[in-house]
Write a protein that binds this DNA or RNA. Structure first.
Lengths: 196, 196, 196, 196
DNA sequence: CATTAATCGAGACGGTACGTCCAGTCTTTAA
DNA sequence: TTAAAGACTGGACGTACCGTCTCGATTAATG
């Protein structure tokens, strides 16, 4: 009777994501074909398309499932310190070959509105939400002022990281991150003393 | 010496740039084919490929030759005011359909290192240089401090604009620009009073 | 082994041959593009190139698969009579629009050695072999002498048909065929009387 | 009358024909581009097109002007012997690399009716006329019968040469030519004794 | 001897076809 | 049923070459 071969499916799912991650991180989205991803995963092309509607979505999921946790908010003594450490984490991620996934997806999103929406909804906004909560915690802690537009602040904080990732105008190194963090702090810290 | 033979047609050159600009601004880079650009320009495909090595460089040149001057630095009473107005100008450009050229080129540059280099050398860096000179003028005028990394400051200033253009996380409206400018000012103004 | 995967579509194969035959017979080889053949067949260009390496081999196969049988040897009371009838058959074929296929292939073969070989091996030689066997049968029947070079005789017999097809120096009509046949007979018949 | 201006260069004319002959004989018509011919002749492409309307016509003229005389009728004691020697001459020409000119022109003529007409009118028919006159001389001399269709006889005589040239079914060697000549003789000689 | 006007070499032009490539869909056999 | 394999349609790409056009520079015959 016909209930065979199902457990293979999850293995295929994982293998495809892993292959996509590896190939795109190494060679970039455009240089990698769907056939290659399927072959690298030891899978038929149809299996890939049964799980995802197109190449971009595979890479999107690879990003979320395999390295989404890499940029989670680290624990720290204060909300501000947590924010700062996350900035360093994000920078390390952008510097690594995995930064290619972000570059690829942003690139494709320019001509694929659905991907753009998915990238915002599934990658960008969750991370922004984390930042927002952290900022609000810092406000509650009295470290930051309360009278600024948080969305704009987040754009200013992370915009320069994406800028350097996508435009390659400079290294995303510790000095750059520290300067960026300090600039954010200068603009938004509460009037009285803020440690560090 | 290349002094013989029929000279390259400036009319064809210009027609191709104009067609590329129009089509890419309207429909986006990927949706426009080289054939379409050539047809729209009333030109053979080989002529296009004789003038440029690929579609991306055509659009690059269209950006530089046709709208490069649009974002030049406007005159103003002070260096700071000039900087602020240029920010508004850039924002207006990004909001317009021509913003598609920037989105397209940054997108393609992710998989085309030569284009990436060309975009930095021919578009980004000249504009950054303008900003840098303006900032230095503002420092000379005593409006800004002198002890910060100018490159980093420029990335913070323009990074959020490119971020919103490419990620679509929010409108590049006047409020956003004003906030961004003020944040820059807060972080870098000279200790004593700065108007506006 | 090549036992997996979707098999090549016989329908596409047949549709391409039919389209090629129709278009080339009507308009000639050079005037027909690969795109047209594919479109007429309702097929993607890649399918055509997956089945054949170029336009010429498609037409070659169309000739062989669709009209190869048209010039088969007809039954007759004697070997000589069979030979004569085949000559008439070939002439009718050359006069028809399908003669364009032969003209096209011979034309292309002048600049395509592989095609030339294929045309000889797959079209010319099998037919020559048929003629040779027929001639040998006629020799056995005592209608023809046995002391002539058969290859040369075949060239003399069919050469003038191809000559008129390719050079257009005169009609390939019944009179011409009859004269050609009689000339062959005069030169090669057995010494004693052979009627017609 | 507009008889002023720089006269056309006879040197250029000759150089082009010579280049065309050399290149086409060596590499074939299709493999040689007009640019190459012009370059080889040390001439601009426009000069070539001012003298001839297209590539095929150049080669046609090269054939006629440079090697037309090669196949002229040789003197001989009898009309028949002259005919036979011309056959050997033609065969030698076909065997040489210059046979490529004939192959090229016949090939192109299949898709170029004007060229086909020109080839018949300027190459084929003059030679056929020579053969016809020779045959008629042989008839007058009493060596050949008078009751056959001369055009058909010519086709039979030369058809097999063109056949071997174009189809490559066998060598155009002395044996072949001799057999072909004898076959013609057998079919058309006068009833009484004919020498050789 | 200067003028004149068509020619010259060089090479860009419009147009058309070619053969390649890949995305996303479909179709077979095997398990 | 689902998987792997790979053929399918569709459409863009970049190349090649034809025959035409446009330069600045020649070159004979005319005036």
């Amino acid at each position: 009777m016909g209930t065979t071969g199902r457990p293979r499916s999850q293995a295929a799912h994982a293998a495809i994501l892993k292959a996509a991650l590896r190939l795109v991180a190494k060679r970039g989205f455009r240089a990698v074909s769907v056939n290659e991803i399927a072959a690298e995963a030891g899978v038929g092309k149809m299996t890939l398309y049964r799980h995802w509607p197109n190449k971009a979505t595979v890479v999107m999921d690879a990003l979320l499932e395999l390295i989404g946790a890499e940029t989670a908010f680290p624990e720290a003594d204060s909300a501000l310190e947590s924010l700062r450490r996350q900035l360093y984490l994000q920078a390390a991620f952008f510097r690594s070959s995995r930064g290619n996934l972000i570059r690829s997806l942003v690139s494709e999103a320019q001509s694929d509105p659905e991907l753009a929406t998915a990238f915002r909804d599934r990658w960008l906004n969750p991370r922004r939400e984390g930042v927002r909560q952290n900022i609000q915690a810092a406000i509650s802690e009295g470290s930051l002022r309360a009278d600024f537009n948080i969305d704009t602040a987040i754009d200013q904080l992370y915009g320069s990281l994406y800028y350097r990732l996508l435009l390659g105008s400079g290294a995303i190194d510790e000095q750059f991150i520290e300067d960026t963090y300090q600039q954010f702090l200068t603009g938004h810290k509460a009037r009285q003393s803020v440690r560090r």
